[in-house]
Design a binder for these strands. Structure first.
Lengths: 340, 340
DNA sequence: GTGAAAGCGCTAACAG
DNA sequence: CTGTTAGCGCTTTCAC
């Protein structure tokens, strides 16, 4: 039952006052070498570690950063979390994680709680929209870096891959293969990334002189089961598409499952391409043609932005920064020429 | 720049002392209804939220629990984390997450930091072994619940699925299909689960009168790339196995990839079965025969154990409890009769 | 260079 | 029932 030693124990053992201990242990060089030595020795001997709770109370905020994602069990966010955690730990911050279930209400509740915890800052994949959403985020008075989705009216740092470009790359690829009836299973229409990915799709088609068939652009809400249903619907139409572009990884898997269950063969009957990495793409047959993001870089950049912003704690109003990464095309066997 | 209101602001506005505010807001019923009403109204008006940092300092520990897993980006642990987070939040605890990279040294370092944070308790997938590992864990003076792997010499609550049974179920299944040359790609030999899964394998073979060929039991370290290599080695032997049992999900995918790259067909040339759920099993061809764990139940049980233990903070020495869940067999198309 | 003292915001005896 | 008081452990002026 060894109670953790406090600064007073160290002070007593070293024969100095608590303030001297604090000074000596802190980077400050305002103490004589010999006292500093005694203090360090005493601290060592006792195995003293400053109580972070007390430090936090004094400082006004905890050395923690929060990460709120839509779904922790999606490996994309798992990797993001992992990257953030690593970077944060290097900087001496712990990471508090929360799952918002991609639900703005839940997200705001969690955000509120974290802000009340006097957490240092938050990496957020925002799922809100509407009028006052951005205002409420700002009202938290906590540094926030947004990732993946952008908050329309908000002034936040933002880190993501170029979704418009990603969609354009895949669309271009499909066009080059000869496809003309292209479908997109899009994300949640209220989210920035979904809008961008649709834009890239339409833009590229039009640039190629192909008028997009709006009935082939359907909402999948970034959810695998919804994409499954939408694919079922698309593929049982008489004028079914010859290629499908899924706006994220989960939806690609949902779509692929639907295609296989209907007895179609991919890519013989229909080509499939996806935005975002699909885990274990190596063992999924066909291997997916996709556009992948550098998640580690994303995570690092987001964390760095946040740490910087936490430095000056809203002092000087640095303008919100954007970092848009260029995604990379990975060819798989899920895309080929359209059927005769 | 509205500084967060403190208890003193509420006290001032309600015309009472801070302790009365504390009492009124706390569940205690030791204040008169009218004062309580005034206090609540004042708190409401100011949007007062007690500062958790101060509460924690007073209490001696934070309302947080830590979760340390070997790899956050593995969906198995992602789901575990998600379950724990949900349960913890219900109980008013936030979750601090850390990734140990399945490395005992890193794990102990993180553990140390979390304990120093005066965190309430920890859900741990332990990766250590050896002499003093358990001792160091106990030395942390922090409630710990172990999940998945067991700490040999430790007195900790433990929650997991029955790994021996899981291996036995799959082995039995393969035997029934007619296989006699069975290989196992096992986990990290120093981890409890790996030992258990090997035991179930050997036991079942022997019970069926088949002497296990020890050269077919190879270590995959629970890592996909290692399993890939081991499968390459196994499948290029003249006396290659007709069935492979992978001791976890990642290794199953690694094995499957190797099988496919060698030009073998699964299950025609070799059957493959796995312990643990494989994400998106629905779109992986062949679909895997596997034994799955109820991760949500695991997560909930672990969190409940931890919360209970945190209640009496080491006071009365409750004996360490075990909860061993029964896994479930899911038949896929990756197993069939051995080739002629 | 070092120590005394105040205080971060809250809770919990202990008086009244 | 309510207020006074004393800390939780640390940092940080401000004197000496």
């Amino acid at each position: 039952m060894t109670a953790m030693p406090t600064i007073r124990d160290v002070a007593r053992l070293a024969g100095v006052s608590t303030s001297t201990v604090s000074l000596a242990l802190g980077s400050g060089n305002r103490v004589s070498p010999e006292t500093a030595g005694r203090v360090w020795a005493a601290a060592e001997q006792l195995g003293y570690q400053p109580n972070p709770l007390a430090q936090s109370l004094k400082r006004g905020h905890a050395r923690m950063i929060g990460v709120i994602v839509g779904d922790i069990s999606n490996p994309f966010f798992g990797r993001l979390l992992k990257g953030v955690e690593r970077r944060a730990l290097e900087a001496g911050f712990h990471v508090v994680v929360s799952d918002s279930d991609a639900n703005a209400t839940r997200e705001l509740a969690v955000l509120q709680k974290l802000a009340a915890q006097r957490i240092g800052g938050i990496v957020l994949t925002p799922h809100g929209g509407g009028e006052d959403y951005a205002a409420r985020l700002h009202g938290l008075q906590t540094p926030i870096v947004t990732v993946d989705h952008r908050v329309p009216g908000g002034r936040f740092d933002y880190v993501a891959s170029d979704g418009c470009l990603a969609a354009a790359m895949l669309t271009e690829h499909l066009l080059n293969l000869g496809h003309r009836r292209l479908a997109q299973i899009a994300g949640r229409p209220d989210l920035w990334t979904a809008v961008e990915r649709k834009r890239g799709f339409r833009m590229t088609l039009q640039a190629a002189g192909v008028e997009p068939d709006e009935s082939l652009i359907v909402d999948g809400n970034y959810v695998d089961s919804v994409a499954y249903e939408q694919t079922m619907r698309l593929m049982t139409r008489p004028d079914r598409p010859t290629a499908i572009l899924a706006a994220n990884n989960m939806m690609a898997l949902g779509a692929l499952q639907a295609i296989q269950e209907l007895g179609f063969s991919c890519p013989r009957d229909v080509s499939l391409a996806a935005i975002d990495d699909v885990p274990w793409s190596a063992v999924i047959r066909p291997t997916l043609t996709m556009v992948v993001q550098d998640v580690d870089r994303l995570a690092r950049a987001a964390t760095d932005f946040l740490l910087e912003r936490m430095e000056d704690r809203g002092r000087q109003e640095v303008a919100p920064r954007d970092l848009i990464l260029i995604p990379r095309l990975v060819l798989g066997t899920s895309t080929s020429q359209p059927p005769r």
